[in-house]
Design a protein around this nucleic acid. Structure first.
Length: 574
DNA sequence: ATAGGGTTAG
């Protein structure tokens, strides 16, 4: 069949015919009818008319009609589809299971020099967002600027959304790397949006704040809060919730409380965000107070509130209180505990050393245990040196979760702690054979608004010489205080001396050391680590907090540690 | 014809 060239005014179709077909298309409700209309259009030549053809396409490609393939056959036969038609197809694929097809269409569109309009990019970026295509997003971003859509509100909000959402840290990093590299796209985006007088609305702000919370970048978060105040944006319940969460996760609970205080409508989710905030800071007693205050204020807790409060109890070792709450969930509030709640309880019992009880809970609970449940128990075995059970659980976990590097590392270090070096090596081999890699530990410290990132053994920092020198001094000084490096479960095939060197160059030690050289005495050092803090580092940082009279606030994978006068708020359980 | 919202166990 010959390709069809649509024209705005087709000679072949009478006006009344066109009007009638449009009417039919508008009322069309299923594919069968549509096929008939399509047939008629082909017969009468109306398919050559741009508007009816566009409508036909839009119907086929709309998300709920579910006949994208049909739309494609129609589209492919049109000789020179107009911008609307291209957009329609891109939109269709962006909502489909093959969003990459949207990108391909976009390439064709570029190739054929079809002009873009304001609708093109939001559809395209949606496709990027659903496939986490960060590199493509950057390229498209460049096109957006080049083609002059850089200040179009839908387009910029879509961009912001992809950047803050695609692939957890990577994307958001791009947004916030501006601290280091002033030229990154995202900073430009923010700047351009501001200079163009574009206001970020609540929804855009929510995603941006979430990125801040994930990364723990307090400065950025504050900047956005300031933006909200400056533009007098109303803090609705969701924005408030995320703002509180951001402050809590960035280590500034006091500011979270301020936000809470100023909010007019305090629903259960806002209270829950506060309670969860106290939880990750290990401030369990206060979390309980808030939990009570909430109910006094007439707000009923929901399932998530219980997750929050049980986590708070867990991190603070409040076993008795947690048991009462757990029991009251169903009896008083009518909630059946979910797997998350059981997870909290297993974690809580395990941390408290009540391994037997934790195991019993798992056996008797009405839901099938998942990887998180076993993970909590495994962690407890590790903390309390229950090697036998630990090895058992470790094996189960590797079966349940074979692609998760952390599981192998955990099991291997349990073997190592038992002095079973061969076994430890075997687990590591197994991990290698499975092609599983360990997520590298990474610590970030912000100094004067600049983020400095350290990996273990990282030599790339411009001041690395100074840091190394200081680190040596620190270790010397701490040895005088009785510090001995804990090499016990270090898994490298190295001599002790080399192991020491390795352990002393863990990312968190590098970050703390850098903090000591680059901030004024007495200033709190703030660090965010992507994994759990290592045991030796935990000991060293406690000592540093005493010897160098510094407060060090560190967020690791699970919670905050506030090191002060030689102690840590986690009470050495984490 | 347009994009995008929330707090939760390990």
């Amino acid at each position: 069949m010959a390709p069809i060239l649509c024209t705005p005014t087709s000679q072949l179709s009478s006006e009344s015919n066109a009007a009638q077909t449009l009417h039919l298309l508008q009322r069309c409700s299923n594919m069968e009818e549509l096929r008939q209309i399509h047939g008629q259009m082909l017969k009468t030549g109306l398919i050559l008319d741009e508007i009816p053809a566009s409508k036909l396409l839009a119907f086929c490609a709309s998300p709920n009609s579910g006949s994208l393939a049909y739309a494609r056959t129609v589209f492919d036969r049109i000789f020179r589809p107009n911008t609307f038609m291209w957009n329609t197809m891109i939109r269709g694929y962006s909502n489909s299971k093959e969003p990459e097809e949207a990108l391909l269409l976009y390439h064709h569109m570029l190739y054929h020099s079809v002009p873009h309009n304001a609708y093109t990019f939001p559809f395209l970026l949606k496709a990027c967002s659903s496939m986490s295509a960060l590199e493509e997003t950057q390229q498209i971003h460049a096109h957006i600027i080049k083609m002059g859509f850089g200040s179009e509100i839908y387009t910029t909000n879509s961009l912001l959304n992809v950047y803050s959402k695609s692939g957890d840290i990577k994307s958001a990093r791009l947004l916030f790397d501006q601290v280091d590299q002033r030229d990154t796209e995202a900073l430009n985006l923010f700047h351009r949006m501001q200079t163009a007088g574009i206001k970020l609305d609540n929804v855009a702000l929510v995603s941006t704040l979430q990125a801040c919370a994930d990364l723990g970048v307090l400065d950025q978060g504050k900047w956005i809060h300031a933006y909200i105040k400056k533009h007098e944006i109303e803090i609705d319940p969701i924005l408030g919730c995320v703002l509180i969460d951001m402050y809590a996760k960035c280590g500034d609970l006091e500011e979270a409380i301020e936000v809470f205080r100023k909010m007019e409508e305090k629903g259960v989710s806002v209270w829950t965000a506060m309670i969860s905030g106290y939880a990750i800071h290990g401030r369990g007693r206060e979390a309980l107070e808030w939990f009570m205050k909430m109910q006094t204020a007439g707000v009923e807790p929901n399932q998530m509130t219980f997750t929050g409060i049980l986590t708070a109890c867990s991190h603070a070792g409040l076993v008795h209180e947690a048991k009462l709450l757990f029991e009251s969930m169903e009896r008083i509030h009518g909630f059946k505990p979910s797997i998350e709640h059981y997870g909290c309880m297993v974690d809580l019992l395990g941390r408290a050393g009540l391994l037997k009880e934790a195991e019993e809970l798992i056996e008797n609970m009405p839901v099938k245990p998942n990887a998180a449940i076993w993970g909590a128990l495994l962690n407890a075995c590790h903390i309390h040196g229950n090697l036998e059970l630990g090895k058992q659980i470790g094996k189960i976990l590797i079966q349940v979760d074979p692609g998760h590097g952390g599981r192998y590392i955990h099991l291997a270090s349990i073997h190592a702690a038992a002095g079973e070096w061969n076994q430890a090596a075997r687990v590591r081999r197994q991990m290698k054979e499975q092609g599983v890699s360990k997520l590298p530990g990474c610590s970030v410290i912000s100094v004067n608004g600049t983020a400095h990132e350290f990996l273990a053994g990282d030599e790339s920092h411009p001041q690395i010489k100074e840091i190394d020198h200081m680190l040596e001094q620190i270790v010397e000084r701490l040895r005088e205080e009785g510090y001995k490096p804990k090499l016990g479960d270090l898994l490298l095939d190295l001599e002790d001396k080399e192991k020491e060197t390795a352990i002393h160059h863990h990312s968190e030690k590098l970050a703390v050391t850098f903090g000591l050289i680059s901030t004024k005495p007495g200033m709190t050092i703030r660090i965010v680590k992507n994994l759990r803090v290592c045991e030796d580092c935990h000991t060293v940082i406690k000592l540093i907090s005493k010897v160098y009279a510094r407060e060090i606030l560190m967020r690791d994978r699970t919670r905050f540690h506030l090191f002060k006068d030689g102690n840590c708020t986690c009470g050495d359980y984490w």
